[in-house]
Simulated scan of single mutants.
Amino acid sequence: MAIETLVLGAGQEVGKSCVVVNINGKRIMFDCGMHMGYNDHRQFPDFSLISPSRNFNDALSCIIITHFHLDHVGALAYFTEVCGYSGPVYMTYPTKALAPLMLEDYRKVMVNRRGEEEQFTSDHIAECMKKVIAVDLKQTVQVDEDLEIRAYYAGHVIGAAMFYVKVGDAEMVYTGDYNMTPDRHLGAAQIDRLRLDLLITESTYATTIRDSKYAREREFLKAIHKCVSGGGKVLIPTFALGRAQELCILLEDYWERMNLKVPIYFSAGLNQLASMIYRYTYLCQI
């Protein structure tokens, strides 16, 4: 058994998640994200570390994307269409639906509004998504005769998955971002009992002790109610898809219980498109 791990991003930093694992001769890239804090070469993982010759099709067996947030998928279109990777890319169906919306929204903001250099185009995004193979949760996918993968429910955001990989006698799991506390539209992460040789896990808040979710929601709603009852307006900036949908559900439920007539507005564009996909996916699950 031989396992080697190359961390190209998200090692001792938040952002640019990208880990390449060589497991019994198969090299898998887990996530292909960007760092939102940089606009220079530090924005993307250093792909030359995978293959100095930049022949990435020979260097990788496949790419696995855990979910649609840009710190996990933001460099994918650049890697496939600019760097030339043309092999298989795996992600869940909701991730495949939402990832191109995230990428295109980012491209518009950076190029059209900020005038920064274009790293990838709309055509690049479209061509990139043609390479994506969507998978169901708990579906075992045989990538080749030696490599199999399986996705498990991760919570966090719709479509987020932890991925199990088996090559010969070696087994591993890459969690991506996951959530063990259920919220109003997602359950807690679930995975089978497994005997693993390697576990790579997200740990951004591993040392953080938070108040209970219900206490935080109560204080949040109390502050909003106090403001609108006094004739004020509340602006809630949310930078992540999933969080916006969770807050809409929370507020709608509270408005009904308190019989409040104050209108609630949310921004159009990306958030509106994402909410339609959220609603469709939820209906399919029930």
Rank of each mutant, 00 (worst) to 15 (best):
G187R: 00
G168I: 03
M102W: 07
D211F: 10
I64Y: 05
D71S: 09
A134H: 04
L241S: 08
F239E: 10
K130S: 06
G84K: 08
T207L: 10
G37Q: 07
G155C: 08
A10R: 03
L137T: 09
E145M: 09
V165A: 01
Y93T: 13
V228K: 05
S229G: 07
A188C: 04
M258A: 13
Y90T: 02
D46E: 13
I133H: 11
R27I: 01
D177L: 06
D40R: 08
I64N: 04
I209L: 12
V89A: 03
N179Q: 12
P52A: 15
E127D: 12
Y85P: 11
L241E: 02
F30H: 02
N22I: 00
P45G: 04
R107D: 01
I125L: 09
S53E: 15
D211A: 13
G230S: 03
M180S: 14
P52Y: 12
Q272I: 08
R195L: 09
D46T: 09
R107H: 05
V111I: 10
Y38K: 11
L235D: 04
E246S: 09
H156K: 12
I224F: 02
A97F: 10
Q139V: 01
R193I: 07
I133R: 11
N259V: 10
A160K: 03
F30P: 03
R210F: 14
F239W: 09
M258P: 01
N24A: 12
N57W: 11
M276Q: 14
Y178H: 04
V167I: 07
M1P: 12
K226N: 14
V111E: 00
Y152K: 01
I50L: 08
M34C: 14
D71L: 02
R279S: 15
I28N: 06
A97I: 07
Q139H: 05
K213S: 11
R193E: 11
Y153V: 01
S53L: 15
G9K: 02
D192F: 01
C62G: 06
L103D: 01
E148P: 04
G176K: 00
G230P: 03
P52D: 15
L101P: 05
H41T: 11
R42I: 05
R113Q: 14
T92S: 14
G37Y: 06
S53R: 15
L6T: 00
K26E: 05
T207A: 11
A97Q: 14
C62A: 15
C62K: 05
A244F: 11
D136W: 11
N22Q: 10
E116G: 06
I224R: 04
L270N: 09
T201V: 08
R195G: 07
V165F: 03
L8K: 00
S122I: 07
I63V: 15
G168F: 04
P182R: 04
C83R: 13
